[in-house]
């Protein structure tokens, strides 16, 4: 059993005492080896396998690169939209003060169009050359330049300048503001 003698130093943990069957099995496995040379056909087949494996690896690498670029592009495409739309908007401007306190506070001009009587004054004092396209001008009787912008009823009553039925826009806003102030006051007639 020369064959078993060279086994024992390394395989002492399992081959220290092989029985007869194990020794015969070892000999049988070694003795039945068939000589099969590495011929040209096998060599060519092995090289073809290497080439195929190399192509598969290159294809996998290319596919991985394409996927990475596509993912990066998709991320960059989605990133700015999400950033701008998710940003919270600034709070709406609020009136500097309540409408009833505006006359007492001349230093703070109102910002909201629903305020205060100083807004019509501004629009009334606007220069005439701004024209009716930008703001509704005050109605002046006898002015032919503004008759085209008036409603037909205003034209019919244009002959009486003192009893004009169409007040200026600023005046209407001012009256509305005052009326709303009167309605909102708790000391109203109804209430």
């Amino acid at each position: 059993m020369d064959h078993m003698e060279h086994l024992t130093p390394d395989g002492a943990d399992h081959l220290d005492r092989p029985d007869h069957f194990e020794r015969q099995l070892t000999l049988l496995m070694h003795g039945t080896r068939e000589q099969s040379p590495f011929d040209a056909r096998r060599r060519e087949r092995l090289r073809a396998g290497v080439r195929t494996h190399r192509r598969v690896r290159a294809a996998r690498r290319a596919a991985g690169s394409v996927l990475a670029v596509a993912g990066l592009g998709l991320g960059l495409f989605l990133w700015p939209h999400g950033h701008t739309e998710d940003r919270p908007s600034a709070p709406r401007p609020r009136p500097a003060s309540s409408p009833t306190s505006v006359p007492d506070a001349p230093s703070s001009p109102p910002v909201s169009p629903s305020a205060p009587p100083t807004v019509p004054a501004t629009s009334l004092s606007a220069p005439p050359d701004e024209g009716p396209a930008t703001s509704e001008p005050p109605i002046t009787s006898g002015s032919s330049a503004t008759t085209g912008y008036r409603p037909p009823t205003a034209t019919a009553t244009a002959g009486s300048p003192d009893t004009g039925t169409t007040p200026p826009a600023g005046a209407r806003v001012s009256e509305t503001a005052v009326a709303s102030d009167d309605r909102s006051s708790p000391a109203g007639p109804n209430g």
Binding site: H6, L7, D10, G11, A12, D13, H14, L15, E22, L25, T26, M29, H30
Partner: peptide, 13 residues
């Protein structure tokens, strides 16, 4: 396991 142990003469480890 059998082939590695009895043909390749490898220890259990």
């Amino acid at each position: 396991a059998v082939v590695l142990r009895y043909y390749q003469d490898l220890p259990d480890r």
